[in-house]
Nucleic acid binder design. Sequence first.
RNA 1: GCCCCCAUCGUCUAUCGGUUAGGACACCACUCUUUCAAGGUGGAGAGGGGAGUUCGAUUCUCCCUGGGGGCACCA
Length: 505
Amino acid sequence: MTLRVRFAPSPTGYLHVGGARTALFNWLLARKEGGVFILRIEDTDRERSSEAHTQAILHGLDWLGITWDEGPYFQSEGLERHRADAFTLLERGWAYRDFSTPEQAAQDREEQVRVGSRLRRARERAEAMSADEVEARLARGEPFAVRLRVPEGETVWEDRVHGEMRFRNEEIDDLVILRSDGTPTYNLAVVSDDVAHGVTLVMRGDDHISNTPKQILIYRGLGKPVPEFAHVPMILGPDGKRLSKRHGATAVGDYEKEGILPEAMVNFLALLGWSPGDDREVFTRQELIEAFSLERVLKKSAVFDLEKLRWLNGQHLMRMATADLLPRVEARLREAGVLLGPGAPSPPAGDAATRVDLATLVELLKPRSRTLEDLVAQARPYFTDPVDYDRPSVEKHWLKDVSGARRRLEAAMGRLQGAPWEAAALEAELRALAEELGSGAGKLFQTLRVALTGRDASPGLFDVLVLLGRERSLRRLEAALAYLRAEAAGPESRKASLTPPDEAD
RNA sequence: GCCCCCAUCGUCUAUCGGUUAGGACACCACUCUUUCAAGGUGGAGAGGGGAGUUCGAUUCUCCCUGGGGGCACCA
């Protein structure tokens, strides 16, 4: 029998990382075993469900590359079947009609809490009711809910993650399966749908463990084969509590926005609650499919570690082919207003001679970035004119020795004017110059780096020069010089005015 | 309150009775180096507690503790 698994989110929010991880495990197993991965949207809660959320979930899965083979089915489309299943249960004696008023139901609940053990008051009332009275109430059109008649005994299953699970039926309530308005409740709808979709393995978060015996009972009542179950651990926040909004970003879309690669997200999520058994950490989707197995899924819940996700993203980023990265970076640069429309000059008002080669830039930046946003931020100075100077960098490398910085800049300009614009040659020129100035290569390079990029951290200086091109590089050095001239005049005069006259001796 | 699940470095994890308890993130040194990354080397860092079983327990059993989840005519 071929494996049939499903992911069944309810569209009451965006795709949550916990949900995404559950979806991923199902998908990985289906792909590994040649099974079928079904997507079902559980939209029976009309109040909280929305089309926008459904779209967000579909988009999230799509972004992650989790493709489904069947669906999306919508739970709301199965209403009639759910209802029919409830009546089948009724006919078979596995369920009963509950004519209790809301007041009675509330009282029952209150009593149950007080007594501290399972009571079956609704069932007692139903059984005390004569067939004639039931007929009469039905004839009068009185509303009733349908409750499952939980039998005596124990409900046991062999969980693919937890092993044997055993619940005493006396611990299970006679749950409502069909509300008095005729709509099904979750446990009935799930079972009905999983039967209809031929699901053979239900893999979901372990917060569903206590629903499982109820659902198994429904399968039995319906006379349908009970699927296998695998309850995977949940994902927790850094405080050990269930991951939620207050922990920050919990929607998959938040990470997409931040510039996490879907490849890295999938990799990271797979490693939460599962491990390959060896020391590998960085996986492609295909490698995950090959390595995945239910046997190696952990029972312990895992804490979501943003730092590790970022690290993993950096790993994926630097391994990714620049050609694959390029469109993503370009889109973000455009969004940031740094690149204009397709085919438009970059930078604004640039010409062929001063255009920065994005592919080369991405190549240089990808091993130094953790996220796409980060990469884009680092790319920015290469496109903006004039450059924004990073204040601490300016202070450290220019202002501590203004005249020295000016001397180095001027000398460099002279040297570079006629130099062949090629990395090795530029390096030879500038190293020779540093030698002449006798101030150390590092000092010269940092002074230039700030002039060229506005900051003191960047790819190798000669790569930067080549990337910017002669014209643009010289223009930036010139601008730096102008800045320093102004700076030299400004602070000096300010300093002078601050000196009290009478302190001078 | 009742039921259920879980328990190795701060975090993700390896170990399927015998290991100096291994790796990764983060952290700290050092190294490479024109800076920042990346890389390399090293460091610090863990079996919650108590009983058993066993020649031997992180590993098996039980209890306690701690954490989590569930107890709706929500999903």
